[in-house]
Design a protein around this nucleic acid. Sequence first.
DNA 1: AGCAATATTGCATTCGAATGCAATGTCATC
DNA 2: GATGACATTGCATTCGAATGCAATATTGCT
Lengths: 340, 340
Amino acid sequence: MNKQISANRRATSYDVARAAGVSQSAVSRCFAPGGSIAPATRERVLKAAAELGYRPNALAQGLISGRTKLIAVLIASHTNRFYPEVLDELTHRLTERDMRVLLFALRSESEVDAILDQVWRHSVDGVISAARLSDAQLQMFEQHRIPVVLYNRSANAVSSASVCCDSAAGERDLVTRLLSAGHRRFGIIAGPEDSFVGEERRRAAIDRLADAGINDVPVIRGDFGYESGGDGARELLGTDPAIEALICVSDQMAIGAIDVARQQFNRSIPEDLSIVGFDGSDPATWLSYQVTSIRQPVRRMTEATVAMLSDLIEDPEAAGEKRLFAGQLIEGRSARLGTP
Amino acid sequence: MNKQISANRRATSYDVARAAGVSQSAVSRCFAPGGSIAPATRERVLKAAAELGYRPNALAQGLISGRTKLIAVLIASHTNRFYPEVLDELTHRLTERDMRVLLFALRSESEVDAILDQVWRHSVDGVISAARLSDAQLQMFEQHRIPVVLYNRSANAVSSASVCCDSAAGERDLVTRLLSAGHRRFGIIAGPEDSFVGEERRRAAIDRLADAGINDVPVIRGDFGYESGGDGARELLGTDPAIEALICVSDQMAIGAIDVARQQFNRSIPEDLSIVGFDGSDPATWLSYQVTSIRQPVRRMTEATVAMLSDLIEDPEAAGEKRLFAGQLIEGRSARLGTP
DNA sequence: AGCAATATTGCATTCGAATGCAATGTCATC
DNA sequence: GATGACATTGCATTCGAATGCAATATTGCT
């Protein structure tokens, strides 16, 4: 019996070839950019393809050509929850360049291996990771010439491409301005110990304060979220009511801290207490908060990430570049700042 | 010359077969659940596979088996920006069931066709759409037996599976409670005309008000975001300062409205003005707002979505079920509510 | 031991498109 | 009309795993 074209079977290049009276190769060449094909033939093939609703099968293309145009995007759940702009921008930039997003949301460190296993199986052309990868994991990709671009984190040992917002510089700026406004008594609401940017910001703040002769600054750890910011403020202000400025390593924690300071400690912000955040996320600009913060240039960063990844895919031997973007200081109304 | 195993080539099932001294079929059967293989052979194969770092190639598997375990997730950019929980939960639930997320973020209606083209090429096993699809587009999927589950929207003509929060019922409840608190003068801050849930909520509010004999309620359209909520409030309160209650079809618009009402119109919320939202998103619970709203049961809804999709993939002939989840009324502090 | 029943294994083919190579076809030029 | 340069086309193979079928190997049982 002949191969039946059942109503719901997808049309293949052979079906199109038969309909157009050409070989399968000709069909393939019609859809390949720069394929050698006569204009007249091309016409006929495209017409047949349109009639049959033919679309090249990405699996077959990927299998034979070794290029899938799939990009694995690894993002920690909390990054996406608190900063959804990042994923949205990444997705758009990738789509613009004709790449597809295979999304993996990580809730915990322990899932990474299982997820990389999947990434691996799908023969992705590249990886964008806004989640922590171990050196061994990065090496695995490097060894197999799969480009990886790290977003807002960088690797220790392995030389790996990355795009980051300069957290340290941003945090230093903030602290410098707080100091020059005369603040001398600080509290820090940091992130989890395993957060790259969180730790970078915490260290930068502590170092800058130490430079100014201020040591033993109390640190409370949160999870970047609203609740934990409030908890941190409660604990810090409860322990030392004389604290003049709270340095929070994320906007959402700053917001939580502002609410608790105002409502439970009856402080006026910024008159009685300065609070700064980090990220420049949307809610930070809301009238009730207007958080003084460092805004990450997300659009430029995501654009750079995708551009860098494209380049690496073109030339996998190219060295991984590290790009550092300066954050922009947002002078909100949640902190008293001095002149720079 | 023999096929060279260069350092960075991926191991294939043939490589493993050679290393373990068995046929490629045996290797394949080791990784297939329930494959007929002797325990001893299995041992040997798995050992060889581990040594070579072998992982089945998902493209080849998908091509030959017709199952890719890929799920296309279509989500409107604004849904993800204002309500990131949805995508995060969906991704996790899908991952739990051993399915992968091919993500598409839609900024505008016009991108849909290009994106469905891509979805199509990738032979996904199913689609979850939190974006509008036309009847023709839905039919296309149905015709080819590709299950689609709509999230928070439902189709008109086509019978399609869907999971929704009962926006109409929720909005009616809110309005009922506002009415029973004695409010008589309302304003509505709605969503864009092409938003499914936005319109559903707007209509429900208008209908419920009409039932109470209140007609010609002013409606301003926003885009679900903070700014547009503030703009809406400014316009409504500017036009009619006697308005007693603002009905916003999203929490972020309610928040924007609260800020503008407080800071630009000097109103106490809820004493001078009641404002209600919808969604039960994170920021709505923040102390400064505590928006009175309807919380969508996101976890249950995403769970149901994924379960439904799994079932449809198992049995594509099954009829698409429509599941409607009741929202939970959150009595915040942004509105005066009467008894039910 | 002998035979059937069952469990393992390998062979060969398949999925759908891309591509090197050889075979045509076309055209210009002298 | 012959010759060469170049453009089109098709053939055959390839990517890597799954699977129906036939060939063996084991096992149980008499």
